[in-house]
């Protein structure tokens, strides 16, 4: 890897005093797309939340570095300002705040630069078109009364507007029908560039029919059990996680 973009070393994380991540190592380089797969309870969502600094997740050992900066003690908003983004598995509803206001204020909070409503709304409409979102969603309250699929699209919309350097997609493809997966994948493809990186956390491979990852990792029992190229996806489809789990158990 040419430069150090995201480097996670020997990461141990507790949730309510029980250990979930138990010495996880991962390096993601600029321009790369990584997929993290694993069975339920392996620690996939914990990894996503700890990257953005959810206070419920306690780092007991190890380090997370992003562009050479240690993230361990940074608050979520400080990490967002450094360019990290999390597409939530269960996005929160914020009644009373419209999507367009929310995103414009978030953009201003992150960049520190003001942007006119007209200019911002033009960009927003463009991104919404791309995700086949109806214009009226802009004036609806953030995720309020959205269906599961609409919420996931709203997360991808936020990613496209906020233009992070590193996007972590936590189960963004779960609970979506085939069409929605394709639209979401299109949004991700649009975002993908040599300047940023994407970590896709998923437990099935459907979204990977549309997005070709550079690296695939299996997360089992709090550690990366196996890493490789896209060919690993076929392996998992054939033998399932159980086989891998027993392999890693023997090791």
């Amino acid at each position: 890897m040419a430069e150090r973009f995201l480097v996670i070393k020997d990461l141990h994380v507790n949730v309510e005093d029980s250990p979930i991540l138990k010495g996880l190592n991962l390096e993601v380089g600029r321009g790369e797309v990584h997929v993290i797969m694993g069975p339920n309870g392996a620690g996939k969502s914990t990894l996503a939340n700890v990257l953005l600094g959810h206070p419920k997740y306690e780092v007991t050992a190890g380090t997370i570095e992003f562009e050479g900066k240690l993230l361990n003690d940074l608050k979520p908003d400080e990490r967002a300002k450094l360019g990290l983004f999390l597409s939530f598995q269960y996005p929160e509803e914020i009644p009373g705040v419209t999507m367009e206001n929310f995103l414009r204020m978030a953009k201003i909070a992150q960049t520190g630069e003001s942007i006119s409503i007209t200019k911002f709304n033009r960009i927003l409409r463009e991104k919404m078109d791309l995700l086949a979102m109806k214009p009226e969603y802009a004036s609806r309250y953030v995720n309020d009364g959205f269906s599961g699929g609409e919420k996931k699209k709203s997360e991808i919309l936020q990613m496209l507007v906020l233009e992070p350097k590193l996007a972590v997609l936590d189960e963004t493809d779960s609970g979506l029908d085939v069409d929605a997966v394709r639209v979401v994948a299109q949004g991700v493809k649009q975002y993908r560039s040599s300047e940023n990186a994407i970590v896709i956390i998923t437990h099935h491979s459907r979204i990977l029919e549309y997005i070709q990852p550079d690296y695939v990792h299996f997360l089992i029992d709090g550690r990366i059990a196996k890493s490789g190229g896209p060919e690993l996806i076929a392996e998992i489809e054939q033998s399932g996680f159980a086989a891998l789990q027993s392999q890693s158990g023997r090791a």
Partner: peptide, 22 residues
């Protein structure tokens, strides 16, 4: 909810204010 807002770049006071103003 607070984490969600903070992950979008709002500090704690900004996030609380957003919710209160809503």
């Amino acid at each position: 909810q607070l984490f969600y807002l903070m992950s979008r770049g709002f500090d704690k006071i900004q996030a609380t204010k957003l919710i209160v103003e809503a």
